[in-house]
Write a protein that binds this DNA or RNA. Structure first.
Lengths: 340, 340
DNA sequence: CTGAAAGCGCTAACAC
DNA sequence: GTGTTAGCGCTTTCAG
């Protein structure tokens, strides 16, 4: 691996000149020299040493992508269409910017914080992080940061976030269910914070506007995804389903799993029970019956996050620090129209 | 961000001592000093600067994961269950080893080669790389390297690879199709090199053993995945399908897409045409009818690759340099038993 | 057991 | 236009 110094010696010039040519600061260098240096660079196949460059410039050209992943839910965090598409979108946008992506995934926020500061990343994209958790990270990291799909209280309104109109999406879908004649509708999720909370809020709002009662204790089907609990949890939920005409699942992933569990128990969708999801990933469209769901574009989310981050790194002003992408109700085959 | 030097000054000792404590070379240091230093490290929340460390030690603690992705096929390379699970497996295994993952994805091998050498990665995992392409990379990179799913000619037999019994998997599945009474079987893929070639070879071998003729020109349904060509390609293939009783798709992805296209054209699976796939990802199990396919475990592939790589980095001997993981035929609902 | 100092490869201020 | 040099933060050799 040849170094600048060696090339300089070979050519009988100083490292500064070589460095200047490399960085195209050619205003400072005579054309003849430029050419000579460039030839040598080619010939010896010069590759810069990033560590040295980073050390000297105190920047790293690394973008950290840190993902908080619940271990009970994911043992393989990328093996999920949403994360896959999202990280893929980030990677794709980063590819030609001269920045390199380093991924950290952990259940443990302080673990994430450690990794982030180790590499002195020039920017950070944070997935699945709550406001409280951010405070832990902030202690160690002060450079440009973009959140994806985070919700904060007002004290953190200045943070940059790329998210989704979760509430509106759920609201629209719920109105659709109601318009199909459904009035006994359950909500299924494995938590009620952040994104899922917003979806739940939209759901409840639509019910309220339609004058439909919702009993949070009874009608919120709380799923437990941990491996040992999973089957029992589905069994319980499938049992409870008989009391409803429709179930709004907070994600396609659960909608499809639930449908399969229902099928195993001989409960037909949508004839006996309507199901809707959220996300519109390929689970939704590949499943039969195809899932009626709320569409979003995670890849685009990733791309936008990168755009915002790069702007921040370059010191540009952001037009908006809180982007909420629109959603769309996709009607497929899992909702039955009920005659009243 | 506090440095070793600053801590040393604060404590009135040399950087060497502090460094020794950090690296637990405590044989060299008195217990009292160790304690004092450790306290200071905690108090000032010392975080090492990776660039400096790497520069001094000429190692990077980075594992490069380079993926050759056909741009006509994937604009988002991670948005694919196979890659997602695989990279997820790699990430998971790397998480506790003290190595950090840097991902490069490109259609262009020399682009990949450049990125790899830039960061001086301590080890490299290569996805979707052919023997010829490796030679380009080798020019720039000489450290431990593990391939995933590559096939080489004999001149490269010493390379380390983690792969799959693609040939046997396809062979077994084809025998199953034959045992169900199928004799007019087409093969669908978008290429015939590497993995898909092996699958094709296994397919043909089973046909030959059963005395069934295969016309490579006619019976190999060559799909063109490029966006502009895609629909036309599916239309052609759906047309051609009428001549067969079964189609062996080289991947679940295509099997499911093909089934959906067939459905759109009113051709019923498996009543009118049997379809099988390869990979057993969630497309396969979520689709209705559920796809009969060949199972593999991409996450485990990723984990094994990391294991092998870490061994190589640590200078251990590998027991085997070419691992081929087993496959399993998963019988679901897309193959009809034909009465003869 | 501890410290001084060289050097990893590169950049950039400054002198010529 | 070009060269000299200090220094980025850390490791490590070698003296003491």
């Amino acid at each position: 691996m040849i170094t600048i110094k060696e090339i300089a010696k070979e050519l009988g010039m100083s490292t500064t000149t070589v460095s200047n040519v490399i960085h195209k600061k050619t205003g400072e260098v005579s054309p003849a020299t430029v050419e000579k240096v460039e030839e040598a660079l080619k010939e010896y196949n010069y590759i810069p040493n990033m560590s040295a460059r980073n050390l000297a410039q105190n920047e790293s050209k690394i973008i950290g992508v840190a993902m908080r992943a619940r271990e009970d839910k994911y043992d393989n965090a990328l093996n999920d269409p949403f994360s896959g598409a999202l990280i893929g979108g980030i990677e794709k946008s980063l590819r030609y910017t001269g920045y390199y992506m380093m991924i950290y995934i952990s259940d443990d926020v302080s673990e994430l914080a450690k990794h982030i500061s180790l590499w002195n990343a020039d920017g950070l994209i944070l997935l699945g992080i709550l406001g409280e958790e951010w405070k832990e990270i902030k202690k160690h990291y002060a450079k440009p940061t973009v959140f994806i799909d985070s919700y904060f209280d007002n004290s953190l309104k200045q943070l940059v976030n790329v998210g989704l109109q979760d509430r509106k999406g759920a609201y629209d879908m719920t109105k659709y269910l109601i318009s199909c004649g459904h009035r006994r509708i359950a909500f299924m999720a494995d938590n009620c914070i952040g994104v899922d909370e917003e979806r739940f809020n939209g759901f409840v709002q639509a019910l309220q506007e339609a004058g439909i009662a919702f009993d949070r204790e009874k009608d919120f089907l709380f799923h437990i995804p941990a491996r040992e609990e999973r089957q029992k949890s589905y069994a319980r939920i499938c049992d409870r389903c008989r009391e409803y005409t429709a179930v709004f699942c907070a994600s396609d992933y659960y909608a499809v799993n639930l449908m399969n569990e229902l099928e195993n128990r001989g409960i037909r969708v949508p004839e006996q029970l309507s199901i809707v999801g959220f996300d519109d990933n390929y689970y939704a469209s590949a499943h039969r019956p195809a899932l009626t769901t709320v569409h979003q574009d995670p890849e685009y989310k990733g791309e936008l996050a990168v755009q915002q981050l790069i702007r921040m790194i370059q010191g540009e002003e952001l037009e908006e620090n809180r982007i909420l992408l629109p959603t769309e109700v996709i009607i497929r085959d899992t909702v039955k129209v009920i005659n009243r």
